[in-house]
């Protein structure tokens, strides 16, 4: 659509155009900003070897790999793959559970509504921040070094990141809970534990359940790659097959992962509906 300024008489068109135009200083600023942004982007692309001949040289190989992935193979290893998948799902389940159980007391210590000592509360908050600021894979590597290869390292990695994340989410729910019931329990002579049990918990339980189910779904996805560093689950087989260029088998594993992850999503949505009554 053209504004058809041309159709207007000359002087009027010029007047209108001057009125629509942005002032010169803003136009210069825009151009400078665009130039700076493009320069940063081009520099980033250069650092990332986007302009290197490697890119063009590798494309045929990439095409080959993707073609091989179009035909999944290795069905004779299906039991092994399914067991790995089961291990992954178990890791996510146990990790989320341990994280969620530990996160309840930590969240109570993180919220000003339930824990009055400000300095300690600040410390607990930073502690949960620190736990969640490192990726599962980093924790998994640490646990693999400390307690050895296997799913237990992955479980602990998931549990620690969850502890940090859920403590934050739970404590935010507690912060947002209404003070009324708490004061009611206190007025009726309840102890600190009664206040939490009868004043806070009924209000925040749905939020906590929902956050936990969400973390469970998200952890199932994360757990699929923990095996890359030796922390158990299907990721080990996947990385192994990809490292020896068995793309057909890798593709079969990826399909299994996709199916399992979407099944867990469905299960979690159903549970959320049954337990909380909303999707």
């Amino acid at each position: 659509m053209s504004l058809t300024l041309e159709a207007l008489p000359g002087a009027r068109a010029a007047y209108l155009e001057a009125a629509i135009r942005r002032p010169l200083s803003r136009r210069i600023k825009r151009v400078l900003f665009a130039a700076l942004a493009s320069a940063i982007l081009v520099y980033s692309a250069w650092v990332c070897e986007i302009f290197s001949p490697k890119l063009l040289a590798g494309l045929p190989k990439l095409g080959n790999a993707l073609l091989l992935m179009l035909s999944p193979s290795g069905f004779q290893y299906l039991p092994e793959f399914l067991w790995g998948l089961l291990e992954t799902i178990s890791m996510a389940f146990l990790g989320t559970l341990i994280g969620a159980v530990l996160a309840v007391p930590l969240a109570i210590l993180c919220s000003s509504k339930t824990f009055p000592i400000r300095i300690l509360q600040f410390g607990f908050r930073r502690f949960s921040d620190a736990l969640r600021s490192f990726d599962h894979l980093i924790w998994a590597l640490v646990f693999v070094r400390a307690i050895g290869l296997g799913p237990i390292a992955g479980i602990m990695a998931i549990a620690l990141v969850d502890l940090g994340t859920l403590a934050k989410l739970y404590s935010e729910a507690i912060d947002n809970a209404s003070k009324g019931p708490v004061e009611g329990v206190r007025a009726a002579g309840g102890t600190w534990l009664d206040e939490i049990r009868l004043g806070i918990l009924p209000q925040v339980l749905p939020v906590m359940l929902s956050a936990t189910l969400y973390m469970w779904e998200s952890n199932t996805r994360s757990a699929t790659i923990l095996g890359v560093v030796g922390a158990g689950g299907i990721g080990y087989q996947l990385a192994d097959r990809l490292r020896v260029y068995e793309f057909g088998q890798a593709s079969l594993i990826i399909i299994l992962i996709v199916v399992a992850v979407s099944a867990i999503d469905k299960l979690s949505a159903w549970l959320r509906f049954r337990l909380i009554g909303s999707a």
Binding site: V47, C48, E49, I50, S52, K54, L55, G58, L59, K61, L62, A65, L66, M69, L137, R221, T224, I225, V228, L238, A239, L242, R243, Y245, F247, A250, I254, I257, V258, V261
Partner: peptide, 20 residues
């Protein structure tokens, strides 16, 4: 749905080690 780490493993085969 394919995790980025898995994409990275596939691209490593095609383009070799490095940020690409």
């Amino acid at each position: 749905t394919v995790p980025d780490l898995v994409w990275a493993l596939i691209f490593l085969f095609a383009f070799g080690l490095g940020p690409l």
